[in-house]
Amino acid sequence: MALAREDINFENIKREADVEMLVKNMVQTDNMIAHLKDEQFEMRNEIKEHKETISKLENDIQLLKKRRDGTCYGRIAWKKILTIPK
């Protein structure tokens, strides 16, 4: 029991080790949160791009329907140039 004679306080050592472990866990948690926020940002950008693509496609569909129905660029000219079945 040479250690006990040198007034080593095991409770303080244990407490310091616990605090060190908590700090490491907090740093890991902070890193994970930052990583997840980055992924969330990227996913939001992808969703925005997909919505823009869908909107453009919907506009194209509306334009094609107008052309098919002859409400755009003159009905007779389009019937001769482009025939899209209804």
Rank of each mutant, 00 (worst) to 15 (best):
Q62M: 13
L64T: 09
I47N: 02
H50D: 11
W78P: 10
L22V: 07
N31H: 10
K80E: 14
Q62S: 09
N31T: 03
L82N: 10
Q40N: 01
A77I: 03
D7K: 06
R15Q: 05
E20Q: 08
E58K: 06
E42D: 04
K65T: 07
K24Q: 07
K79D: 03
P85Y: 03
I61A: 13
M43L: 15
W78N: 15
R68L: 12
H35K: 14
E58H: 04
E20K: 07
M32V: 09
T71F: 02
R68D: 01
N31A: 10
I81Y: 06
L22G: 08
E52N: 10
E6N: 05
A77P: 01
L22P: 07
V23I: 14
Q62Y: 12
V27I: 14
K66M: 14
V23M: 06
E11P: 04
D7C: 09
R75K: 10
S55W: 05
G70C: 01
I33N: 05
C72M: 13
K86G: 00
H35L: 13
I81D: 15
E58T: 04
L36G: 07
I47T: 13
Q62T: 12
E49T: 07
D60E: 12
I84N: 04
L57N: 02
N9V: 00
H50T: 10
M26S: 08
P85N: 01
N31W: 03
V27T: 11
